[in-house]
């Protein structure tokens, strides 16, 4: 893989590691209850919740580890955790 001067690694290469495979529970976002406050995006330790074009929030399942912080902290209870079948 390409490295920088002094064998330093390129910035932001952690994305190669698809941490979504760690997940047991998957967050399900209910857009009817969502008030678009953006709390989930602010507090996600993975930084994997993106804002879609219509201002709703969507988790990136490639990286979501299923920790459930978003579901716990959502002020309008719009996120539920469901066990995932793989």
């Amino acid at each position: 893989m390409a490295l920088g001067i002094g064998c330093s690694s390129r910035p932001g290469k952690a994305g190669n590691n698809k941490t979504g495979s760690w997940r047991v529970f998957k967050p399900i976002f209910d857009h009817d209850k969502c008030t678009k406050c953006g709390m989930c995006k602010t507090i996600c330790p993975e930084g994997c919740i993106e804002e879609s074009e219509d201002d709703f929030f969507i988790p990136d399942e490639t990286y979501c580890k299923g920790c459930g912080i978003c579901a716990e902290e959502c002020p309008s209870d719009a996120i539920t955790m469901e066990q995932e079948e793989k």
């Binding site: 932001g12 590691n17 941490t19 993975e46």
Partner: peptide, 15 residues
Amino acid sequence: FDSGHRACGGCGAAL
């Protein structure tokens, strides 16, 4: 801060 880091799910330090 890129996704894909190896912190435990629910890590405070990652946040």
